[in-house]
Nucleic acid binder design. Structure first.
Ligand SMILES: [Mn+2]
Ligand SMILES: [Mn+2]
Ligand SMILES: [Mn+2]
Ligand SMILES: [Mn+2]
Lengths: 220, 220
DNA sequence: TAATTTTGTTAGATGAATCTAATTTAGTAG
DNA sequence: CTACTAAATTAGATTCATCTAACAAAATTA
């Protein structure tokens, strides 16, 4: 059994590897707010447990077992977020912090029941894929709104940032997953976009925002 | 903020005080499966935090603050059990272990929402009272089935032992809270009772069992 | 009351997870 | 290629929660 601390290292390693390829000690250190020497010694410990491949001065890599364990923790996190939104009626901006705690619950039955109640969902409230029981993730390749051109339309499917601040901002603009947004114009200088969706016909979004919104291009 | 470890000491101290009056180091030690010197040092630590009154060789006592904090943890435990049974459809024998973990979740909103979804319940699935938001408990004085006499009837309201084994035994006899049980006869030698309830007209229960069943005496 | 047993405390060690300071290795920029 | 900078490691300290061994106090028994 892994400690809560070990679980957090595994999960973060997994997430970082998927958002930027190679993960170095300094990356984990920054993301976890833990100093580098602490990270190094934890990596050695996890290497002994065959959860990471560790070689000094080389990028950090999860073993297959490490990936599986990490995937299962992420599964629990995302199922929990979905449960909180769907069953308990929380807003999508409120669930991450609670899920950070519940994801460490050791009870297969608990998550099994959630999964069942939710009808075996494939994505969480932020559009992130929910790993299967073996920790495997099915990746979808979405387009960033920031990469769209004038005239193109996108069906929003996921956010890259699930922080409360960002999601509250989206709430304030009535932006939610599933919406079809159309690019009206783009300011060449800083990439600011004017888009339309739902009842909003002229909403302006900075690139900071459009880079965090993912979706599927729509024909037409 | 108290650590998970501290929370477990507080909760156990509270529970023991209510089931047997005075609590000594050895009692906590046994209940928590932690050696006495460890308990002693934790008591000193909690005394510094003004959560327990500690004097060497004297019984252990929670301060008012300690009682409040303990009560809130127990509230979270029992609300969780109720939620697991009512909302997630777990059996009453399955919920204690999960609640042991979820009770340490730091999120007032989470338990607030549970409470609301459950309609502000006053008791948990085992008939134990749920403390209010200030950790205060309203005690009901129930009678033990083992103290009933032949001819008396009891409406079952609580169990004293919520271990999986005991509850599975009750399930196997279709004994649940709310049932009216009537004492048909008592074996004077060992207190074994024959009772009737529902469709069962001649069920035999040992004193080990009848001592763990509580209820309200019914007239008639 | 004296001896014995039970309960509790003190002292000191351990392992987990963290830190700071010092040192080493790797990468980058002249 | 050398000098500087960034990243990583080593060494050693700290805090928390735990333990064992030894000792002391309180309670029980004879
Ligand atoms: Mn999340
Ligand atoms: Mn999410
Ligand atoms: Mn319980
Ligand atoms: Mn209960």
């Amino acid at each position: 059994m892994n400690s809560l601390t070990e679980e957090n290292y595994l999960k973060t390693l997994f997430v970082l590897a998927n958002e930027s390829g190679e993960v170095n000690v300094i990356d984990l250190s920054k993301r976890l707010n833990i100093k580098m020497p602490t990270v190094t010694s934890m990596m050695k410990k996890l290497a002994v447990k065959k959860l990471v491949h560790y070689e000094s001065y080389k990028p950090l890599r999860l073993t297959e077992r490490g990936k599986k364990e990490a995937g299962i923790i992420i599964r629990k996190h995302r199922l929990t977020e979905m449960f909180l939104v769907q069953v308990m009626n929380f807003g999508w901006e409120e669930v991450h912090e609670i899920a950070e705690q519940l994801e460490h619950t050791h009870s297969p039955d608990f998550f099994e029941k959630m999964d069942e109640m939710l009808g075996y969902p494939k994505i969480d409230p932020h559009g992130s894929p929910i790993p299967d029981k073996n920790g495997k993730i099915e990746w979808k390749k979405y387009s960033k709104l920031s990469n769209c051109r004038v005239g193109e339309a996108l069906k929003l499917t996921a956010v890259i940032d699930s922080s409360e601040e960002f999601l509250k901002f989206l709430n304030s603009r009535e932006l939610k997953l599933g919406l079809k947004v159309k690019v009206k114009s783009i300011e060449p200088f800083d990439g600011t976009m004017v888009i339309s969706y739902g009842k909003k016909l002229n909403e302006t979004l900075s690139q900071t925002v459009t880079k965090r919104l993912l979706g599927e291009l729509i024909q037409g």
